[in-house]
Structure formats: C-alpha cells, structure tokens
Design a protein around this nucleic acid. Structure first.
Lengths: 137, 137
DNA sequence: TTACATCTTTAGAGCAACTCTCAAATTTTA
DNA sequence: TAAAATTTGAGAGTTGCTCTAAAGATGTAA
C-alpha cells in the first residue's frame, strides 16, 4: 500500500500529475483511508503504469478516460480495448521511427560541430547570410 | 522558394505552428516579399528541420530560441551549440529507451487481449474488484 | 475583367495538460 | 510536544499550440 508520494517516487511521475490524473478520472479504483488519503494498492500501480504508458505515447486524456471506462464496463468491451491497444502500439512504432530520423540529424550535427572544433574551423553556414556552403542532412 | 503553406506541406508541420514558431523568433532569417509574405529559401528549410527536430525531442521553445540566437552570434558560440546538440541527443536516446519500455507493455497487453478474444475468456482483472488474477507486466 | 476561391497576414481567443501555490488538516520525526 | 513533512482540493499560472476573425493578396475561370 502506497501514499501518493510513494507512487510518485516509484513511478517517476510528479504528485501534481498524479492528482491531476486522479481528478481526470483515471484512478476510480483507488481507495481512501478514513482521513480521505489515497492509498494505492500494488494492483493500482499496474493501472498507473498503463496510464503512464498511454500518456507517453501521446494518447489524449479524454481517450485514456475512455479506456479506463471500458475496463470498468467489463467483458463486453474487450474488443474495443484490444483495438485501442493496437492503435496505441502503431502510434508508438511511428514515434520510434520519427525519433530515429531525428537522431540521425542530431548525429550529423554532432559530427559537424565536432569537426569545426577539432580543426578550428569557422561555421560557414550562418543563417543570416542566407549562404549555404555546408548543409544539414 | 516556398510560401508558408508549401513549407507546411513539405515538412508536415501545420501553418499555424510555423507562424507560431516564426512569432517565437525561430526564423529570423526568413525574408518577406514586397507584400510582407514570408518566402522560405531551400536553406531556410534546413532551419525548419532542425527546429522540428529539437521540438520533437521535447526541447523547450525558450531553449530553441537560445540555439537560434547562438547560431546568429557566430563562431564564438560553436562550443555551446555543440553542447546543446549533445544534450539533445542524450535526451533523444533516453526517449528511445522509454518508448521501448512502453512498447513492451503494449505488446504484453496486446497478447493478453488477443488471448481473451481467441479463447473467449473473461477479463479476470477488473480494477473495480481490486482483485488481481492477471497482471500487466 | 469581374467574380470567386484560395492564400497570406496579425491579433487575439481558446484549449490541453500540466505545474505550481495556497490553506487547512493530518502524520511523522526529533 | 513541537517542528517538519505530507495530504487534501481549489484555483491560478504556464507552455505550446490550435483556431477564429478580419483585412488584404493572388490565382483561375467565364
């Protein structure tokens, strides 16, 4: 059993964000103690994990709420939930590709600056000149 | 030479976002024609590309502005720019790792639902029961 | 060459998702 | 027992778009 701070530390999510998510209806299953304090069970952590996952892939909060609601509705919603997971996975793979592209550009830039520094060269590509003697990939 | 709409199409960024970025000072080098309309050169597109890259990796707009300003300041800022690129790359690699983790969870979930559907099983893990007979990874 | 659609501009409103501050009520620790 | 830390909800503030509006420019077609 965990307080919100413990969850925050364990899951690397700020307390503020956890409370915001709670207010957004992402954790309808989390119980409170007699003083109204949220107590997360081990099982609840798994739900925090899936919410974090959906957010990390850019799922809108409205859609996350929908997924939670479907879970609560029970077995009749399994196919819709499956579809959501499939779409989310597809989006994650696309983001992976995008990130790879950007990493390639960053690699190029890193090399470019490394070369300038090592050989004590001037940056021949000042944007204000609109002269391009050296281009980014 | 491209109008803002052409850049938007070519780079897959909305016109709104490009104008917002322009207002944020990300494109001080983009020229206007006699009717005040922005005309992006081929070279300018490379700058849009690097801005898009920095954004994609979650760089704050203030930090992007800083990078642009350093470029304009010239050769004395090459080392600082190199540092920025290195940090950005590091962040990108971390995000890559994070995405991989989330993909593993999504894979697990996909399998879980696939199994439920194929074998016509019930979802034994309803959060409202706080019973965990089947857990996410 | 007039009419209409499309595109451009800026200013500013609206929005999503936090992020932070506050004050009051517990807990925990020293 | 007192000080420090943590919890709560309400609500203000921030970031980075996203959209709307109004006015002007441009392109196409009859």
């Amino acid at each position: 059993m965990y307080t919100i701070k413990e969850v925050a530390d364990k899951m690397d999510i700020s307390e503020h964000t956890l409370r915001f998510w709670a207010k957004s209806g992402f954790f309808p299953f989390v119980k409170r103690n007699e003083n109204n304090i949220r107590i997360f069970s081990e099982n609840d952590l798994e739900w925090v994990k899936i919410v974090k996952c959906l957010r990390a892939v850019g799922t809108e909060n409205k859609a996350i709420k929908r997924y939670i609601d479907l879970c609560i509705l029970g077995d009749s919603t399994i196919k819709e939930r499956y579809g959501i997971i499939q779409n989310t996975k597809k989006k994650a793979l696309e983001q992976m590709e995008e990130l790879k592209q950007q990493l390639a550009l960053l690699d190029y830039k890193e090399n470019f600056y490394q070369n300038l520094i090592k050989n004590n060269l001037k940056d021949t590509w000042n944007p204000m000149n609109n002269i391009r003697e050296e281009a980014a990939v």
